[in-house]
Design a protein around this nucleic acid. Structure first.
Lengths: 372, 372
DNA sequence: GTGAAAGCGCTAACAG
DNA sequence: CTGTTAGCGCTTTCAC
């Protein structure tokens, strides 16, 4: 009775006018709060009549359960973090805007479909426990391109929160799962495509950073060159610098051993290379074949349209979220904790030397059908 | 003592190995939990020594405060909802992808800068109190283009949660604040621009829906025609249907009173109109001047580049979030609860009749730099 | 200056 | 089948 009494007092005193609580519903429906909880959550074994009645009363009072209380009690928030590497305070890397936008859209969609919502979080933590990261209760987190020994990931894992990464983690970062493209296969296939179109010396525009995407792609290029008996011809630049790309493209085409085909690893490289080609009076695709890795629709409309390698960020986003939610809910079952996703070469005029039809759609591998 | 005893038991029993709680820190530091809380939050009047000591111990134990508990206690979650109108389960309308992506990026950035995080939520609620919307504790919400009597907004407002909308609300939707472009001024300015370039009869590609953007823009067009003494020439189509735009564009150029300039209200209209012009053998800009409203970089690269009206979604996103957080924190002060934002006409070849240089890059306002 | 106690609103044991 | 009770982990009066 004492405890009950205290509750009563608490209610009477703390009664907020704005929102009805579970107790108000219980009182109005003439049942206990447990019954209300069970009726609304579809738990317990209540007669349908009670359930209906409670629901009706709750509805009438405009009752909304407190998400905070439920989260505290159950330990589940229904929230998934999405971190995006940040340059200069802005989420999303500018040069890869289209990739992130599409990936995030798909991820959000997939999360929502399973009853979770995505929270956009910055790529870094202030060490202080009082930044955004520790102010939100996360059931799990998606990390895009985690760096070697990423402090955010490390901390998350230490807290026992599942982390799934887009892009295979560098080093021994202990993520729960990861999803990535088969960058070697993608680059190899694309170089074969260029060779088939008549390229004799293929150049590469690559980055100076050590992330896995850059590393694996470059390695694949070098390996391909070795196999093909071609001397590698490449320029590397800091990919996060928007101007450096143009300079590097120029340098690449100014070389004495000028390539007759180029693959650019980063989104703006298509534009960069096109501009450089123009400066040197090189016609695309006649004098120079061009491909770049990009999700941007821009390259369908350039003159000429440029062949792009799509990493299919939408699929990656969806998969990453599925894996994460499986881990959260323990639905994972088996242990295929890493997933390799196909890429898509969208062949356009810039990489077809002979009588290039201006095709918009790409040759697709059979695996592609229906997957999106 | 009984209560304390109970706590002890609770601890001893419920002690989870993964995470240290505030009690663990208190015990380890030899102080009370109040002191820990105060020390960590910078509240109370503790000697610096105590404060430092507690922080150190907390750090050593890897203590992280529980966001859920704090939210429950304080009633503030630091979370801001972002709703995006949805067609077919996908967040973001495809035809306005670039707008939403940029708006969301800016909004997220602005929120993070003030210590809040953005949660992406669907445009609709299941009436049931157990969907994503009621599973997350929101301090406020940003709504993009709320429809007349939007149920989500209505419910949110009923709960006393601040709502700021991007786009002025239709009807008497009681949002806390809104931000919008001056659509009349934008359309008028753009039509003047076309007239100055030599247009004699300007057509409009518009939508059939009743949202304010469509309505205001169309009205501005009609008014301009009246003032200019020109008969309106327009086609309306359901803007959410990706194919209907192409058909409407075709219809517009097939009319006996064919316009010599066209403004398309929606993002894909530039492409639609360009294709239609080609079918009828009309050269752009010589026979037909073209402008469309879009945030997409595609139109800088088309042949010819197309003049676009940018609504500056980035600025809108930033402003919306500022207003919302002001409302949440009661920092608002005055009552300028609605804000009109400028638009930006990016003039390219398609709207310049005389001696149009085939520039690849567009004249850009200084603010544009770095936009990808 | 510091600590004890009272809950925030809910769910899950467990007792009837 | 339904109700009572004990907290989830934190912040916050209010005593000391």
């Amino acid at each position: 009775m004492t405890a009950a009494g205290k509750h009563q007092v608490g209610r009477a005193h703390g009664r907020r006018l704005g929102r009805a609580g579970i107790r108000d519903v219980a009182a109005a429906a003439g049942v206990s709060i447990t019954t209300v909880s069970d009726a609304l959550n579809g738990k317990g074994r209540l007669p349908d009549a009670t359930r209906r009645h409670v629901r009706e009363v709750a509805d009438r009072l405009g009752y909304r359960p407190s998400a905070a209380a439920r989260t505290l009690r159950t330990g589940k928030s229904g929230l998934i973090g999405l971190t995006v590497t940040t340059y200069g305070e802005e989420p999303f890397t500018f040069t890869e805007f289209a990739y992130f936008a599409e990936m995030a859209r798909a991820a959000s969609s997939a999360a929502l479909a399973r009853g979770y919502a995505l929270v956009i979080l910055p790529g870094s933590t202030r060490q202080s426990p009082y930044d955004v990261w520790s102010n939100v209760a996360l059931d799990g987190t998606v990390v895009i391109d985690p760096s070697d020994r990423d402090p955010v990931v490390t901390e998350l894992v230490r807290q026992g929160i599942p982390v799934v990464s887009d892009g295979r983690p560098c080093g021994d970062l202990p993520v729960t799962a990861w999803v990535d493209n088969d960058h070697e296969a993608a680059v190899t296939g694309l170089l074969d495509h260029l060779a088939a179109a008549g390229a004799r010396r293929i150049g590469l525009l690559t980055g100076t950073s050590t992330d896995t995407y850059t590393r694996l792609s470059t390695k694949a290029y070098l390996r391909w060159c070795e196999r093909a008996g071609q001397d590698p011809v490449y320029e590397a630049y800091p990919a996060h610098d928007p101007c450096a790309g143009a300079v590097a493209a120029d340098r690449l085409l100014a070389r004495p051993d000028r390539p007759d085909a180029v693959y650019g690893l980063f989104d703006p490289n298509g534009t960069d290379l096109l501009a450089a080609a123009r400066r040197y009076g090189l016609r695309v695709p006649d004098d120079l074949l061009l491909v770049c890795c990009s999700e941007s629709a821009v390259y369908a409309g350039t003159e000429p349209p440029i062949t792009t390698l799509s990493l299919k960020p939408g699929r990656i986003g969806t998969t990453v979220v599925q894996l994460l939610i499986d881990a959260i809910e323990g639905t994972g079952g088996g242990r295929p904790v890493q997933r390799i996703m196909p890429t898509d070469l969208i062949v356009r005029t810039s990489s077809q030397r002979r009588r290039a039809r201006t095709t918009v759609s790409a040759p697709r591998s059979p695996e592609d059908r229906g997957r999106s």
